[in-house]
């Protein structure tokens, strides 16, 4: 698996898109910090970008890599290697190279700016951790979609639709539901609904640091416990890990029956 990972990783690290992605974050980091001079604000803007863009890029890279390397994967499948190792290798290769682009692209400007002296270091690290999680989750989800869809165009379509759904539509339905049923106690429901969407979950994780003063304005006891203690942080992290593990598990199950 490590060998496959290594070559997928090399391949991606040399791809033009990895550089574009890396440069995008690099420029973004510099622009936010040096034109703005406010680390807090930079972190907020970055959060907005990371929770929307990282999933999109992860999704696109995932399906693109799968379909583009289909024939090569067939060559690998004829080699004496376990199937699931081939795909896990590719999956980790993509996720790690994307995460590296993110961490280096944003990390360099922040380090140059003097982040280590700033109090925002924790918020910033959390942002990178969440970004990494989103990469791993959305590459896994898109691989699942690609594995289940033979047709490349359809696969792309489904993947983008999934992203659109989780990034925008889900919240729209969620908010509508909250507004329509606002005479009922909704705190448990809204926490649960958050857990079912990795983008919302990542957002909450960052909000716990950035907007805790607002979140503590809630009256519900469940909320108070969730936001007011470390419980929220721990549960969110745990569920994010589940969000990585379940698609990976499904990928492996699918692979057992999959014909190439």
């Amino acid at each position: 698996m490590l060998k496959i990972l290594k070559y997928s990783f090399y391949d991606l690290m040399r791809s033009r898109w990895s550089y574009v992605y890396f440069l995008f974050y690099l420029i973004l980091g510099f622009v936010l910090l040096f034109l703005n001079n406010d680390v807090d604000k930079a972190v907020i803007t970055l959060m907005n970008i990371i929770i929307v863009l990282t999933p999109l890029i992860g999704t696109i890279f995932g399906v693109m890599y799968y379909y583009n390397s289909k024939e090569f994967t067939e060559l690998l499948l004829a080699q004496p290697i376990n199937r699931s190792k081939i795909f896990m290798g590719q999956y980790l290769g993509i996720s790690i190279s994307l995460t590296l682009s993110l961490v280096l692209g944003l990390g360099i400007p922040f380090v140059l700016y003097g982040l280590f002296k700033s109090t925002a270091i924790f918020n910033f690290s959390l942002l990178l951790v969440v970004g990494a999680f989103l990469n791993f989750i959305f590459v896994a989800l898109s691989y699942n979609i690609a594995l289940s869809t033979e047709n490349k165009i359809k696969g792309f379509g489904y993947a983008i639709l999934m992203w659109l759904f989780l990034a925008v539509i889900y919240d729209g339905i969620f908010l509508t539901f909250l507004v329509v049923f606002n005479s009922y106690p909704l705190d448990k429901f809204s926490l649960a609904a958050t857990m079912f969407n990795p983008i919302d979950l990542s957002r909450i994780l960052i909000l716990l640091k950035l907007d805790i003063s607002a979140l503590l304005g809630y009256t519900g006891a469940v909320f108070r416990k969730f936001f007011g203690t470390n419980l929220g942080m721990m549960i969110s992290m745990g569920v994010l890990m589940l969000w990585v593990m379940l698609p990976v598990l499904r990928m492996n199950l699918k692979l057992r029956k999959k014909d190439f």
Binding site: I44, M47, N48, I51, V52, A167, V168, I169, D171, G172, F174, L175, L178, V179, N182, L186, D187, F189, S190, L191, T194, I199, D200, R203, I204, L207, D211, A214, L215, G217, Y218, T219, G220
Partner: peptide, 20 residues
């Protein structure tokens, strides 16, 4: 304005949909 009426909606703070 929405949060004033439905406090639970605050959980959607900073989401893309809310920005829209």
């Amino acid at each position: 304005y929405i949060v004033n009426k439905t406090p639970e909606a605050l959980i959607l703070l900073r989401s893309l949909f809310v920005d829209i």
